[in-house]
Design a protein around this nucleic acid. Structure first.
Lengths: 198, 198
DNA sequence: ATCATATATTGACGATGTCAATTTAAACTC
DNA sequence: GAGTTTAAATTGACATCGTCAATATATGAT
């Protein structure tokens, strides 16, 4: 029989995810509510329970999808070979920052373990992807044999992660994201590559 | 008249803050609840409203106090003069990391703008303190005239902030915080000072 | 066509933050 | 010291939330 508009679309799950992302992007993590989403979709307050057994399960789905999204972008934008270490690092950082600026609340969700279920296998897998992308880049271009790749990876990831979060949370004062002549971000990454105490 | 045990201690405000810190430290940000605190203090559910007009106001007080606490520690532990830039940076980073590890949830609260009221003047002031401490250190020891102090400050702060958050959120796999011979943290900061691509 | 299963619905529960009206205690004034 | 003002705590109500249980409806397989 044709869709009886009352008993729902068949793909409610999809709509829930879409609406949740919308709330996340526009109003932040705490704006996401099961009942609110149900209301927005003209559906009973308990309908979503068939697709996500808890709020945490919904957030886990959002996080997993976001990790995969980020990994895809990184894959596309970071050149695989024959680029310098410096180039590769810049591409990687640019991509992460760009994603963070475009979807600040998704980025925050990714690294805050309080919300999604990080025992979840699928989520864990999609998260590991990002790390392996980074370590792969560094090993492929390793030049400095005095510092093990893991230390380099953590240093680099700490730097870009910290920078992105400071910007997203609004913890850099006005003007802190621009500087005469050279982009702040580029300057910062160069500091990491070249060192402060040249 | 003597304290009539029913109508309260006179310093309920103090007790609220203390209990809130306890909940924050032991169970995390979302464990803090006005009603829960009132229950723990054997007080009516609306009693705290006299001292904090909203939950946000309470969190603002917690954040302000934590900023001041951190600033005090930094003041104590970072040598003012006649130390090398390298030494000063290490002391600063050590102090921040130590604070973060001891009070993970306080540290997170400090930089998540969703909870406290960052319009609040007192909070803003106590936050600026930390930044000025960092820039003071860098200007006092500035050696590299090619990079402006602000860029150095942001790079350094991004690195340590990112590293602390990755550790607090559990986003560094097992073993990522130890490495043979030399402390991971020291190694990472040295990467920033010396650069990756030596 | 019947039956099983997936999906939605309604209703309830305990908990939360916030408001309003009220009561009690303490502080201040004359 | 009595009377009055102000501060602090109480009770009660409201809307909202996440979750659970019982019920109803639609879809798909046999």
């Amino acid at each position: 029989m044709v869709n009886n508009a009352n008993y729902h679309h068949g793909n409610l799950r999809e709509h829930i995810v879409k609406t949740a992302f919308q709330l996340l992007d526009e109003e932040g993590l705490d704006a996401i509510g099961i009942r609110k989403i149900a209301r927005m979709l003209d559906v009973a307050h308990s309908a979503p329970a068939n697709h996500f057994k808890s709020k945490q399960a919904l957030l886990t789905a959002l996080a997993t999808e976001s990790f995969q999204h980020l990994a895809t972008i990184v894959d596309k934008k970071v050149p695989q070979d024959k680029s310098s270490l410096r180039e590769a690092i810049h591409y990687f950082c640019d991509t992460v920052l760009e994603f963070g600026l475009q979807y600040p609340n998704r980025y925050k969700l990714l690294w805050r373990r309080e919300y999604a279920d990080y025992q979840n296998a699928e989520l864990d897998e999609s998260m590991e992807l990002i790390y392996s992308q980074l370590t792969t880049i560094l090993s492929n271009h390793a030049q400095n044999k005095n510092i093990d790749v893991e230390t380099q990876a953590i240093a680099l990831w700490s730097l870009i992660h910290g920078y992105v979060l400071l910007r997203l949370d609004g913890n850099l004062s006005e003007g802190f994201d621009k500087v005469t002549g050279i982009e702040r971000q580029t300057a910062i990454i160069d500091v990491l590559i070249n060192g402060i105490a040249l």
